[in-house]
């Protein structure tokens, strides 16, 4: 059984059918791409998967659990973590604190224990510090653990966002245009990071991307959207040679 199963998913905003009859199935460990021209409904699908929007029809199951219409928080707890197209870090907080927010739900002590600094506070905080540093080390950010997140260079902010998402211990990682605003070298480095994350954490990844080089370089399967409809679906090489896809991207 596939890790993520999306069946005839759709949403309408008034008269606009933003996503229509979407069927996607992603196997554990796959790197799956979602592409399409501007306004095709890619980010809307991410928002549906993470509970920001409630679908008008269809079902979403993650690892056999129905998560259709659940809240963002419940869906995160069920195992979907995401990054954002326009980076959304906690800018006034340090790099390591950003990751610790990701660790928030997995590592608990009560408010009273926190205020009175009872033994559990020290124990859990120490564990969180170690886990967060470990994650930062993976992304080569550990030397900047105490830097303010907003002072990081752009590429590192992207990495930090991925690290924060991974800290919630997800089953499925959604990356929304991770290469947006990056130059070719940075994109290349990012491709390596994504490959590495996938191997190191045995992670299933679904990504939205415009950069064709990145998509064809790392995604195994693709879904191409246009005006909310699926244009083509399947193996990357097949899909990219599909005449409909070429037409939608390059015109006739």
């Amino acid at each position: 059984m596939a890790l993520l199963e999306v069946k005839s998913l759709g949403i309408s905003f008034g008269g606009l059918r933003a996503v229509d009859n979407l069927n996607v199935s992603i196997e554990q460990g796959k790197l799956y791409g979602l592409i399409g021209p501007n306004g095709a409904g890619k980010t809307t699908i991410f928002n549906l998967l993470t509970g920001v929007y409630k679908p008008s029809d269809g079902f979403i199951t993650l690892d056999g659990v129905d998560i259709t219409g659940k809240s963002t928080i419940e869906i995160n707890k069920a195992g979907i973590a995401r990054t954002f197209q326009n980076i959304r870090l906690f800018k006034g907080m340090s790099v390591i604190d950003n990751v610790k927010i990701g660790l928030h739900n997995g590592n608990g002590y009560s408010t009273i224990e926190g205020i009175l600094r009872l033994p559990r506070y020290h124990k859990v905080e120490k564990e969180m510090q170690e886990k967060a540093l470990e994650l930062l080390k993976v992304f080569d950010l550990d030397s900047e653990a105490e830097t303010l997140a907003s002072n990081l260079p752009y590429g590192k902010q992207r990495k930090l966002e991925i690290a924060r998402a991974l800290a919630t211990n997800p089953k499925l990682l959604l990356l929304d245009e991770p290469a947006a605003g990056m130059n070719p070298q940075e994109t290349l480095a990012l491709m390596e990071t994504i490959q590495f994350v996938r191997k190191h954490f045995n992670m299933t990844i679904l990504l939205i991307e415009h950069d064709m080089k990145l998509v064809s370089g790392i995604c195994e399967e693709l879904t191409v959207l246009n005006f909310g409809q699926v244009l083509a679906q399947g193996e990357t090489s097949e899909v990219l040679n599909n005449p409909d896809v070429i037409k939608a991207y390059l015109g006739e």
Binding site: N76, A81, F84, F90, G92, I101, H104
Partner: peptide
Amino acid sequence: RAIMAIRDNRIAAESVGI
């Protein structure tokens, strides 16, 4: 930290389950 995360970015805080 959770409170400050909400201050800095509510949507991101929600996305990590706060």
